[in-house]
Amino acid sequence: QVALSRTQVCGILREELFQGDAFHQSDTHIFIIMGASGDLAKKKIYPTIWWLFRDGLLPENTFIVGYARSRLTVADIRKQSEPFFKATPEEKLKLEDFFARNSYVAGQYDDAASYQRLNSHMNALHLGSQANRLFYLALPPTVYEAVTKNIHESCMSQIGWNRIIVEKPFGRDLQSSDRLSNHISSLFREDQIYRIDHYLGKEMVQNLMVLRFANRIFGPIWNRDNIACVILTFKEPFGTEGRGGYFDEFGIIRDVMQNHLLQMLCLVAMEKPASTNSDDVRDEKVKVLKCISEVQANNVVLGQYVGNPDGEGEATKGYLDDPTVPRGSTTATFAAVVLYVENERWDGVPFILRCGKALNERKAEVRLQFHDVAGDIFHQQCKRNELVIRVQPNEAVYTKMMTKKPGMFFNPEESELDLTYGNRYKNVKLPDAYERLILDVFCGSQMHFVRSDELREAWRIFTPLLHQIELEKPKPIPYIYGSRGPTEADELMKRVGFQYEGTYKWVNPHKL
């Protein structure tokens, strides 16, 4: 086992960053958080920038500027975001240094004079007029057009580079997404736009490419001749908990499936790229999406959770019991969808996408189930092999396979070949997804960000279904809070070829 401390991990990262040409360590950078008073800024962006600063992973002359409508001070920003920093008493001095680099400007999102004030403020910072500028839009999409237009007109660096990070949702359907994309691309070049999907920053999602293309053993079996089906799962054990009003506007397909799960599907299904260059990788992902037809209604199961009468606390409440959810809402909190990649490698292999709230566990994984062994000599005792990439929690890679049961006879039983990170790298604290992705933006690497043509294809696949749901308002199937979801989803999976045995229990190697 390799035991690495946080300091050692960050030392390795620093070495990698400083050796590259793309990370300008000594240049002045300004990180501007648009929507600095909001939840995302408070819980994710400010803490992430602090962790990067604490670990010495930001360029040395980096300033952080918050911008929002609320009249706040840096002290206010500190008060609301610091509880999420997880700072230790030993880091007190470092924390003071961090907040000394912070400033805040209040202004409207659609007022040109406010942006001119913001620009004057940035120019007044040390070497601010020639600094590289990175704008993070932690804002609702309704203000994107006004904000990007004003940034472009008043706040661009004339000497350094300018980059803009856009948070999902990128529209509600193909038409609104196209409108937003066309607007942003009329102001910024594609190499300046970073559409963030934080799932692409997760260690195991990034590991998929290495697993596939750096190991000879997987190449020959990664196709329709050997793989019976692919299941991509995202499960949350909690409901909307008072935030249903926002969720109800989008629903589970827009929230998770059309982005996170579809991105994971691309990494499983794509061909080997010409290189690890950002556009070479994204070219292959677009090719996969172009091979997927629009979702067919007979390959869809929609569910909505109801309270568990035997549960406790939140578990007793259904989705419609959330006071922020519109009365009688038919918005799905669970969806199972089957897609097919219609190309030579994957023809006929079902890709089953499942996601839901208020389920029995927290889990995100990719599961490849292989065909049955031909010419069975073990009297149907063999179960199908599976390769599982567990994204969260407890990152893991393992192969479910058959071995001989101890004893006199040739009785096979299920076991696993474990390729888990935790076994080799004991207690290594890896940077989280937002840390990686923000560092990628500083480096100018777009590999783990969504390109406009990729986004367009993703919406093309799901828009007809979303429009049909909005028009017909089908009643989702009720499922109990804390269950596996509607049984109809299991029946759909069985119908397209997935075999669920229920006889195997994964042993978490992190707890051995």
Results as ranks from 00 to 15, higher is better:
427 N>K: 14
282 R>K: 09
419 L>S: 07
429 K>M: 15
431 P>H: 06
453 D>R: 08
466 L>A: 07
437 L>E: 08
427 N>A: 12
310 D>Q: 07
363 K>W: 05
414 E>S: 14
379 H>L: 09
407 G>N: 05
268 V>W: 01
320 L>C: 13
510 H>T: 09
311 G>V: 14
258 Q>L: 15
326 P>G: 10
369 Q>H: 08
380 Q>E: 13
312 E>D: 07
480 I>S: 09
476 P>N: 03
484 R>T: 13
425 Y>W: 14
338 V>F: 02
454 E>W: 13
298 N>C: 08
289 L>N: 02
385 N>E: 13
468 Q>F: 08
459 W>F: 13
354 R>W: 07
428 V>S: 15
331 T>I: 06
305 Y>Q: 01
398 Y>V: 15
463 T>I: 08
488 E>C: 09
496 V>C: 14
293 S>D: 05
401 M>W: 15
348 G>I: 01
495 R>T: 08
465 L>K: 02
338 V>G: 04
479 Y>G: 02
414 E>Q: 13
473 K>M: 06
275 S>R: 03
262 L>Y: 00
501 E>W: 04
378 F>K: 02
510 H>Q: 14
312 E>M: 08
300 V>Y: 08
287 K>S: 09
372 D>K: 09
459 W>Q: 14
308 N>R: 15
478 P>G: 12
283 D>T: 05
441 V>K: 01
388 V>P: 01
337 V>N: 05
450 V>D: 00
468 Q>M: 05
358 A>W: 00
438 I>Y: 11
454 E>L: 10
448 H>K: 07
363 K>T: 14
456 R>S: 12
256 V>P: 08
372 D>M: 05
433 A>L: 15
378 F>E: 02
444 G>E: 04
484 R>N: 15
395 E>D: 15
475 K>N: 10
421 Y>V: 14
477 I>P: 05
477 I>R: 12
486 P>K: 02
285 K>D: 00
291 C>Y: 13
445 S>T: 15
387 L>S: 00
289 L>T: 02
414 E>C: 14
388 V>W: 04
280 D>K: 08
260 H>K: 12
332 A>Q: 05
312 E>H: 07
264 M>K: 03
356 G>E: 00
336 A>I: 03
494 K>L: 07
504 Y>D: 14
285 K>I: 08
300 V>H: 04
493 M>E: 13
273 P>D: 02
270 M>F: 05
382 C>N: 11
352 I>C: 03
487 T>A: 15
300 V>T: 11
355 C>G: 11
305 Y>T: 00
367 R>W: 04
355 C>N: 01
336 A>M: 06
467 H>M: 12
429 K>Y: 11
275 S>C: 09
493 M>A: 11
501 E>K: 08
487 T>H: 12
408 M>N: 15
332 A>Y: 03
392 Q>T: 05
277 N>T: 11
489 A>T: 13
402 M>H: 14
422 G>M: 06
480 I>M: 13
428 V>T: 12
375 G>K: 14
328 G>Y: 12
408 M>D: 15
321 D>W: 05
416 E>G: 12
426 K>L: 14
382 C>Q: 12
479 Y>C: 01
493 M>L: 13
406 P>F: 15
471 L>T: 13
351 F>D: 01
290 K>R: 12
398 Y>I: 14
419 L>I: 15
275 S>D: 02
289 L>V: 04
310 D>P: 02
463 T>W: 07
257 M>W: 01
355 C>Y: 01
435 E>C: 13
430 L>C: 12
340 Y>M: 09
329 S>Y: 00
489 A>F: 12
363 K>M: 12
336 A>N: 07
403 T>F: 14
379 H>Y: 11
442 F>Y: 09
315 A>T: 07
366 V>F: 07
420 T>K: 13
422 G>K: 04
287 K>Y: 03
383 K>A: 14
363 K>Y: 06
298 N>K: 12
383 K>P: 15
386 E>Q: 08
278 S>F: 07
453 D>L: 03
377 I>M: 14
391 V>S: 14
470 E>N: 10
342 E>G: 04
283 D>R: 06
459 W>T: 14
431 P>D: 13
359 L>Q: 05
427 N>M: 15
367 R>N: 07
275 S>V: 04
500 Y>R: 14
490 D>T: 13
351 F>K: 00
277 N>E: 11
372 D>Q: 09
470 E>W: 05
294 E>Q: 11
350 P>D: 01
341 V>M: 08
396 A>E: 15
429 K>N: 13
391 V>H: 15
324 T>M: 12
334 F>T: 00
336 A>F: 05
331 T>R: 10
309 P>Q: 07
380 Q>R: 11
284 E>G: 06
508 N>S: 13
427 N>G: 14
279 D>T: 10
283 D>F: 03
365 E>D: 09
355 C>L: 02
259 N>M: 14
263 Q>T: 14
412 P>I: 11
257 M>K: 00
476 P>Q: 02
278 S>Y: 05
310 D>A: 08
409 F>E: 12
326 P>R: 09
359 L>Y: 00
321 D>V: 10
303 G>Q: 01
454 E>Y: 10
511 K>F: 12
496 V>W: 11
326 P>Y: 10
352 I>L: 04
348 G>L: 01
403 T>M: 06
492 L>V: 07
305 Y>I: 01
295 V>C: 11
468 Q>A: 14
399 T>P: 03
371 H>L: 07
279 D>H: 11
492 L>D: 00
509 P>Q: 13
278 S>R: 04
388 V>E: 04
